[in-house]
Design a protein around this nucleic acid. Sequence first.
DNA 1: CCTACCTGCAAGTAGTAACTTACACGTGAC
DNA 2: GTCACGTGTAAGTTACTACTTGCAGGTAGG
Lengths: 101, 101
Amino acid sequence: MTLDDEIARLAALANPHRFRIIALLAKESLHVSELARRLGMSRALLYMHLQRLESAGYVTGHLELSDEGKALKFFEVVPFAVTTTVASIVAAVEADTESTH
Amino acid sequence: MTLDDEIARLAALANPHRFRIIALLAKESLHVSELARRLGMSRALLYMHLQRLESAGYVTGHLELSDEGKALKFFEVVPFAVTTTVASIVAAVEADTESTH
DNA sequence: CCTACCTGCAAGTAGTAACTTACACGTGAC
DNA sequence: GTCACGTGTAAGTTACTACTTGCAGGTAGG
């Protein structure tokens, strides 16, 4: 885990909308439009947050065909536990200063 | 721990400068100007980062009088371990929706 | 006096994350 | 055809964080 990755993972979590997205998806896998309805936010905005969460590895999305033939994009959480300590920060910074020497 | 607090704590960590500040202070307590010199950043900018870290509870600062009578503001890290999991997020969001019901 | 340190803050700018609006496209039902 | 559902993206605005510059104040020493 590089310094940038660790920071990106923390930054991806640090947002109330994204907290609510994860909390909802933790209980059931939902498709984008349904998720937007439950959260009361625009689909376009939700997309942005889902992308951030997905690229940080907290959720994954996949297309699914409904009975009516509609393509639905379902998202689900990837179980995780992010721990940051003084020691992990020291290690990340040192690894970074080594590599860029 | 409220939802906002938890997010503030995560956001306060999610920054490369602040990672370096913590990594430096983990080894020795330093005063602001010395810290700025070691990090190669302006004192004013460092101040802003220190304030964010202090209000999130990761570091503490106190004035100290040097032998030459100069007032130096020393900072040191408050040992911490921040863990965020799917369960902790669900709990935080539920506690929040309860309180604001 | 001037220089060399230090703390502390305020005002302005730059850069980025968040958010809105609007569009293109595709399916099934009326 | 049109309506109601869905995905996906691009362009523009707002709001916030990060950052710079500059100044005020203090102490010690030449």
